[in-house]
Nucleic acid binder design. Structure first.
Length: 844
RNA sequence: GCCCUCGUGGUGAAAUGGUAGACACAAAGGACUUAAAAUCCUUGCCCGUAAGGGAGUGCCAGUUCGAGUCUGGCCGAGGGCACCA
């Protein structure tokens, strides 16, 4: 048996593809297809997650190419970011050198996979050829009022010494460093993303090729809520407090006001030792998940009272409370303990009045303990009495508006996007500070504002700020001395428009060429991890809208027409007797179970979890490719699970994939050396019928992203060919079909398929291979299988011609031995007949 | 607490309301081999030599001639969000 040499074949075809240039012309009548996988952060080496992502994308891209689309399939590097700075500090390298080295390693590794990437289009966000355009976009956005400066509380990561967006804080910790986040007041740059809240929410409806799950997550993230603002008069002063509520219908149940510890009213108490103590206590709570869950609702009772706007003479105490957030609504609420659980808990603790104003719909629902938040009828509420909750909301909003003390208000959860980072390895923000206190953009002719390379990485905090000369500059218009902004941009900015840059990646004079943009955008199929469901995708949607505002030629709101989010790659976890994690390389399977290779002690096998460094359950793609070949690695990672679900990596699996590659190789050789000229024409016809059926099915499955099922069908096709050889079909038929078969396999296993094709046809190389055309007239649609049931249970089946009449079918069914037996002594009261599908006899 | 997704053999999984478990992994038995590897074949819950029959897609109901698939309720697992008023 001829053993396939996957290493040699991989190399041969990869060299061939690297020489081939993607030549598309805008004048082509071909339809375009922009296939994009999320570009990687160059962390060092590729991991199995990348392999899965790019293998899925490559099947789609190659399938579209074979179907005669102009396919844009580029790759780049999300190459700014903190890890480069950390690595630089640890290893005494420059972030730039570290990044370049990683890119070169990872590019080599990706090329080992035989992807149909057009490497001529490669971009890297840390190159000034990229980020100078980003600075230009920033200035355009600034001029359109989309960049704003705010002095606000920010999330300060004490480990990374940087500011995090609210969205980047997970359970009170930095999403990367995991350090407890502190609150700090700083002057920051923001993109005014909240200006687009409504559009970003509404346009989700137009994204019908996006997973529902992702759209829902974005919807919840934007978090639109309709409520009401109401001014409460403070009794002791002339001032009012504006509150926001989504339950204005419960206004008559209001028994206290609560404001955030950051509310302006707190100024009145800044001298009070009790208040200072209280505020310190608040800021120390609410960090860990556990603390939040168990955090007690605490308040500081002020000496102030407010007048209830609808109850003459009713005085309401004002509290400062730890559960009110300043950056949502107005930072103040009215408390209605009877119908809000938090307010209820608070009222219990401070012995405040609890006044029910909603009678539960179902009178059995006695409110034993806690707040009632369900539907019901309003009571104890003057003019609102007997109204439903929704009617009461409408009515009270009208009353509030009449009294000129507030009105209907729509509030979004989405906050502006903080983009300032006190870091070195990022895109410099092209702004300068003048002596008169003004902050202005750098003149566009002076772009790029380059990152200096002579920096001291041992400096704590921002090295740019510490640089001896970098920040000293002059304002071009006046020639006066000025100081540069030393903050750099959040790296999510880099990834918010890279897909646009791919349309004209070498264009020097502007970020993108409008003509190329109009041809290629939007991305037809975007593929990546679900972890980017909110931040990256939402920011990119914002960028597209911002670019529309700045560039009259562009009229596109949604950058990603189709989105596919793939699952993670998992692997079993291993621990030794000392409870230390072991990597898959460090264990071996024996008859006694799993043992450690290091000291032969017993290994506990844990559940399969997402591959991670901390659990050491990582398998290195490059070494897998070396052992099994690129095709086997691609094949296995696509075959075992639906692409949107998690997949479990296993040695058995990839080894089985390699065996299958070998089997196809053998099959190909057998067909080439097969000599037979004539054979049974009926068998030939049947073979072709089945083959064509598979061809249609597999095309359909690829379009639907059911790649695991497509692979199962390819296995069945291989069985069909073995059967064909056994039935001694003619060489002509087998050979012609095999050529088509290899084209079907090409998007999955391009090296094997091209090698088999070149052997079958005696050519050296293959170019512009088309997806085989199926022939519907060859399908065997004359014969079908009819299933026969008795009372809904299958009792037999028979093969017959298509469209058999009910009468004939019933006669035929009753001839079946087992059916006869089961119907004996029984009275049929009903026949169910579904043409070409089923017969069901119902007996008494 | 709120929102979402998912529950099918030892495992990963298939299945426009119409033959449940395709395809594969693992296992057991067999063939080939001096042996192993590789390859191929068979088996897969219960009764039965077999033909066949029974149970069966987390649990309980419902709709239907027919439910893994549709509806309601419950249980379990995973994910997202959160003092969001």
């Amino acid at each position: 048996m001829d053993k396939i040499n996957v290493g040699e074949i991989d190399k041969k075809w990869q060299i061939f593809w690297s020489k081939k240039k993607n030549q598309f012309k805008f004048t082509d009548k071909k339809k375009k297809f922009y296939c994009l996988e999320m570009f990687p952060y160059p962390s060092g080496k590729i991991h199995m997650g990348h392999v899965r992502n790019y293998a899925i994308g490559d099947v789609i891209a190659r399938y579209k190419m074979m179907n005669k689309f102009n396919v844009l399939h580029p790759m780049g590097w999300d190459s700014f970011g903190l890890p480069a700075e950390n690595a630089a500090r640890e290893n005494n390298l420059s972030p730039k050198d570290w990044t370049k080295k990683n890119i070169s390693t990872m590019k080599h590794q990706l090329q080992l996979l035989g992807l149909s990437i057009d490497w001529d289009l490669e971009i890297s966000t840390c190159d000034q050829e990229y980020y100078k355009h980003q600075q230009e976009l920033f200035i355009d956005f600034f001029n359109k009022g989309l960049v704003i400066r705010k002095e606000t509380y920010v999330n300060w990561d004490p480990v990374e010494k940087t500011v995090l967006a609210n969205e980047q804080v997970i359970n009170g910790r930095g999403w990367r460093s995991n350090a407890v986040v502190e609150r700090k007041k700083l002057n920051q740059w923001f993109f005014n993303i909240s200006k687009f809240s409504n559009e970003l929410l509404d346009d989700l409806k137009t994204l019908n090729e996006w997973p529902e799950k992702v759209k829902l997550m974005q919807q919840n993230w934007i978090g639109k809520s309709v409520g009401c603002e109401i001014d409460f008069q403070i009794l002791q002063t002339k001032k009012t407090i504006k509150i926001f509520t989504t339950r204005p219908d419960t206004i008559f149940g209001a028994t206290f006001l609560a404001v955030s510890t950051d509310h302006p009213i707190c100024e009145n108490f800044k001298e009070s030792n009790d208040f200072i103590k209280f505020r310190n206590k608040c800021s120390s709570v609410g960090t860990t998940e556990e603390a939040i869950a168990n955090a007690e609702k605490i308040g500081f009772k002020t000496n102030l009272f407010a007048q209830h706007p609808f109850i003459e003479g009713k005085k309401i105490p004002i509290f400062i409370a730890n559960f009110i957030l300043m950056d949502y609504g107005t930072g103040a609420i009215f408390g209605c303990p009877a119908h809000d659980q938090r307010d209820y808990d608070f009222a219990k603790k401070y012995a405040l009045e609890i006044l029910p104003v909603v009678k539960p719909e179902n009178s059995d629902q006695k409110n034993i303990e806690g707040a009632y938040t369900g539907d019901g009828t309003i009571i104890n509420s003057d003019f609102l009495n007997d109204l439903s909750i929704s009617k009461a909301k409408e009515r009270i909003i009208k009353e509030v508006e009449n009294k000129k003390i507030g009105g209907k208000k729509i509030t979004f959860r989405l906050k502006d996007w903080g983009i300032s980072r006190q870091r070195y390895w990022g895109c410099p923000i092209p702004m300068i500070y003048l002596k008169n206190g003004k902050v202005v953009p750098v003149d566009k002719s002076e772009l790029p504002v380059k990152l200096p390379e002579d920096i001291d990485m041992n400096y704590k905090g921002n090295p740019l700020d510490n640089h001896p000369t970098w920040k000293k500059t002059k304002y071009k218009k006046t020639g006066e001395d000025a100081v540069r902004e030393t903050d750099t941009l959040d790296t999510f900015v880099d990834s918010s428009w890279y897909f646009i840059r791919f349309c004209s990646p070498r264009l020097d004079k502007k970020p993108f060429d409008e003509k190329s943009f109009k041809y290629w955008m939007p991305v037809d199929q975007y593929i990546g991890g679900v972890e980017h469901a909110i931040l990256h995708l939402l920011y990119s949607r914002f960028f597209m809208r911002a670019i529309n505002l700045c560039n009259k030629e562009i009229k596109l709101n949604e950058p990603f027409k189709g989105l596919f989010t793939q699952g993670m790659v998992c692997h079993e976890t291993y621990k030794n007797e000392k409870n230390q994690w072991l990597s898959p390389d460090e264990i071996e399977k024996t008859n006694d179970g799993f043992l450690s290779k290091i000291d032969s002690t017993r290994v506990k096998v844990g559940p399969s979890e997402a591959m991670s460094k901390s659990k050491k359950n990582i398998v290195d793609p490059e070494s897998m490719i070396k052992i099994y070949g690129a095709d086997a690695v691609r094949w296995f990672i696509l075959s075992d699970s639906p692409p949107e679900r998690d997949v479990q990596w296993s040695t058995e699996g990839v080894s089985a994939a390699h065996k299958f590659i070998q089997r196809i190789w053998n099959l190909n050789n057998k067909i080439i050396s097969h000599k037979l000229k004539n054979s049974d024409s009926n068998n030939e016809k049947k073979f072709l019928a089945k083959f064509n059926d598979y061809l249609f099915k597999i095309s359909d499955l690829i379009k639907k992203f059911q790649l695991n099922v497509a692979i199962a069908k390819i296995h069945e096709l291989a069985n069909l060919f073995e059967e064909g050889l056994n039935k001694k079909l003619s060489k002509k038929n087998l050979c012609e079909s095999q050529i088509k078969f290899m084209k079907i396999m090409l998007p999955f296993t391009p090296h094997l398929a091209c090698e088999c094709l070149s052997k079958l046809e005696g050519k050296n190389f293959y170019e512009n291979i088309s997806w085989p055309k199926g022939n519907k007239s060859l399908l065997n649609d004359q014969e079908i299988t009819l299933v026969v049931q008795i009372n809904g249970k299958k009792r037999g089946l028979f093969i017959t011609k298509k469209d058999l009449s009910e009468k004939d079918a019933l006669v035929e069914a009753k001839k079946i031995e087992n059916i006869r037996k089961n119907l004996k002594d029984k009275k049929i009261i009903k026949n169910i007949f579904v043409k070409n599908k089923i017969i069901n006899f119902i007996t008494a």
